[in-house]
């Protein structure tokens, strides 16, 4: 791993881009890493493009500037690809992980992307099957750890379970569905 590994999440207001960044940061913390997780604050409204960020390191992180050159970009909503340049600042060897039913090759061709490593995962389908709703953020966590190898799957599952049990007391089916979605995405993510 680089000294500081940086992630940028793209989503639409209400899709859980902030929650995904916080969950991922928290899970990384429980593996002993130093972390930062923060959303971009602006006019927040349902459906508007939003961003959130993670920093992970084995050493204390003192930098507090925004993230402009992430190592990986995660796109929670595929329609964002048409309106904003999600590859902005992403280096040539960086990862682009997109929630879509299309394959990495199709995405590369459709958006004429040169360089970068593309991975895709149908998080809408997975979340509908496991959670019963189109919530792409938790499945994308599974895809993210598969693609980057940065965290252990079981650790992520354990940590998410702990956090969700607290948030959804008395609704074990929600917790179970979310955990299932992470596992499924981990297995189904497609890489070039």
């Amino acid at each position: 791993m680089k000294e500081i590994f940086e992630i940028r999440w793209h989503g639409r207001g209400g899709q859980g881009a902030k929650t995904a960044a916080l969950l991922f940061g928290d899970a990384a913390l429980s593996t002993g890493k130093y972390i930062q997780a923060f959303p971009e604050y602006g006019p927040e409204r349902m459906g508007a493009p939003v961003q959130s960020f993670d920093r992970l390191s084995d050493k204390p992180i003192t930098i507090h500037s925004g993230i402009t050159n992430p190592d990986i970009v995660v796109v929670l909503d595929p329609t964002l690809m048409k309106t904003i340049d999600v590859t902005d600042g992403l280096p040539d060897d960086g990862y682009l992980l997109i929630n879509t039913h299309k394959s990495p090759e199709e995405i590369r061709k459709e958006f004429n992307i040169k360089g970068k490593k593309i991975a895709t995962c149908d998080a809408y389908k997975i979340s509908e099957e496991t959670i019963g709703k189109k919530i792409p953020n938790t499945p994308m966590l599974g895809a993210l750890i598969k693609v980057t190898g940065i965290l252990d799957l079981n650790q992520m599952l354990k940590d998410t379970e702990k956090k969700m049990k607290k948030k959804f007391t008395g609704r074990p089916e929600i917790v179970k569905g979310n955990l299932e979605s992470i596992k499924m995405a981990y297995e189904e993510v497609k890489q070039e």
């Binding site: 130093y34 972390i35 930062q36 997780a37 923060f38 959303p39 204390p60 507090h64």
Partner: peptide, 8 residues
């Protein structure tokens, strides 16, 4: 930068 940023 700090108030809403999650850290260890």
């Amino acid at each position: 930068i700090i108030s809403h940023s999650m850290e260890r």
